[in-house]
Write a protein that binds this DNA or RNA. Sequence first.
DNA 1: ATGGCCAACGAAGTTGGA
Length: 265
Amino acid sequence: MKIATWNVNSIRTRKEIVANWLKANPVDVLCLQETKVVDEDFPRSQFESLGYHIYISGQKSYNGVAIFSLKPLEDVSTGFTPLLGSEKVENFDEQKRVITGILDGIRIVNLYIPNGSEVGSEKYEYKLRWMKVLKEYLRSHLAKPPHNLCVCGDLNITPDDRDIHDPKNKEKSIAASPRERAALQDVLEIGLADAFRKFTSEGGHYSWWDYRHSGFIRNHGWRIDIHYLTPNLYEKATNCWIDVEPRKLEKPSDHAPVIVEIGID
DNA sequence: ATGGCCAACGAAGTTGGA
């Protein structure tokens, strides 16, 4: 089974690129972030004609997540509230950043973690609070069948210095600051491991490059689009890679898709 | 170098991204 994750930075702007990619790479599941469109205006037909079932949670202008799956998903839900109740999650579900469903005994959780803007800002504190709720949310999923999690998406945090092209000033840099990395590690304590790092240990592999500064040409990027797996799935993972090809196209997303292959039918 | 790019919204400039 192949599960891909891709921050497309507007599905309406990127629909041709995404559809063409799926034709060449017919993954079982594609998790999208930053769809940036309300559900009524989501360009469904282009992807349904490729055989995908489509599950979406969008909003106007910002955020928005979706899952495409060749087979129907079970137990689909959006946001934290269905598991945790509204009193535990402040107003987090106003921003559409979480969608999940089950496929063949795997609970797939698609996340668009808040960016955080600048270290120390109000949005940064929001991000850190969001991470605490995320941990409870994932723990609740893990306690229920099928007890196998694939947590993927745009995590907006680099796990370590191998995942940023220039670690200088990282303490003050959003997505690399110590409190963000500690918050991520705290979430992973429930029992999640980075699928990409099972196969590739060196640095220099990125999933996001700034549109500015010729970031892609110079490979000045960050690896922030990640699959985390529970141990049973981690053992079964047979490959995980970043497909940089779509980043070379005209009007690309600033992120590249990342694919994990798990050795089950 | 307090920047450069890109998208949404809406019809010019602001907000957000990471």
